[in-house]
Design a protein around this nucleic acid. Structure first.
Lengths: 173, 173
DNA sequence: TACTTTTGTAAGTGATTACTCACAATTAAA
DNA sequence: TTTAATTGTGAGTAATCACTTACAAAAGTA
């Protein structure tokens, strides 16, 4: 990964997250990155290749964040960590995560698969704690995480921290 | 509203919902609607005007759907209706609602304000039922409604009906 | 009927789009 | 040091973009 490659990736991430994929031209990306437009195509083939490079990094980062939850053995701690998940994401990475959410709608990418390990961990945790419908409980928490994430990244008026502690109380955590 | 105007609106809705706003050209809309491209600009001024015409209808439809909940006096019934809200939307209107969700991300339109009357009704209902934090409870329900709606419209694997009855049980409804 | 307004079209406009290509600079390998 | 591969550029490309304009058809009004 050369320096200019990283500049391109950084510029593309910023613009895609702010304006959207289709609204961002390769010439804009090149200008912001301070490189010639042709270089984008040399390195990433086409505009979609540039996007894929960014999205792949997203999957990897998500796996790392999930690892902390999935490897946890105490079921209560699993649920607690899941609920407070959104609070853990770095403010500096907002653009990055915003893009992930944005593209789920703009390009109709289904994010279900990515959440599968988290769902399993939660389902397992609720099962251990004797809940009646562990899978539905898990699904509900994921719905919550997704909603909180959306709100935070979209800059909604919702107070995420208050919401998380509220839910923790509901689960006696 | 002439016949051709409605054809344009219908075609634009379909394409915007499927491909997104920026990915849909006015020429595509004209072709699908079976009219000349110029007519779009005659009636709606520009591409954004076309979009606004669609979005305005969205606000009106939402108000109508909310009315049933907001006018309800029995607090338990308010919550029940809110939770099963997503189940009420017509399959034929999926494109329409999908566009609303899609544009929230593509054009960064904040949907908080639209939900305000629903939030008030729910908050009031939870208050009457003696809940400790009525506003947070209301916010949580809205989060769930939004999440279930997203999932359904995105064609996620989530079983919406199962999820709704599960939630109803949680609230003893 | 005669006149005006509205509705509609077809053929344009310049700007921008994603992408290519010939070639130069840099780096790596021999 | 010569050779070969990689990295980078800048000036192209045809296609498409949102939008305009001159003009015709239709509808409304007197």
């Amino acid at each position: 990964m050369t320096e200019k490659q990283e500049q391109i990736l950084k510029a593309a991430l910023l613009l895609f997250a702010k304006e959207g994929f289709h609204a961002t031209s390769t010439s804009k990306v090149a200008k912001l990155a301070g490189v010639s437009e042709g270089l984008i195509f040399r390195h990433f083939g086409n505009k979609e290749g540039l996007l894929k490079a960014i999205l792949e990094e997203g999957e990897n980062r998500l796996k790392i964040l999930f690892a902390d939850i999935v490897l946890e053995t105490d079921p209560k701690e699993v649920i607690r960590k899941a609920i407070t998940f959104t609070g853990k994401i770095d403010v500096q990475d907002y653009d990055f995560w915003k893009l992930q959410f944005k593209l789920k709608w703009e390009l109709e990418i289904n994010g279900d698969k990515k959440m599968e390990p988290l769902k399993m961990a939660l389902s397992n945790a609720f099962g251990k704690l004797g809940y009646e419908s562990p899978e539905l409980e898990a699904q509900l928490i994921i719905l919550f995480i997704d909603g909180i994430g959306s709100s935070v990244l979209k800059g909604s008026s919702l107070n995420a921290n208050e919401m998380m502690t509220f839910l923790l109380r509901k689960y006696n955590l």
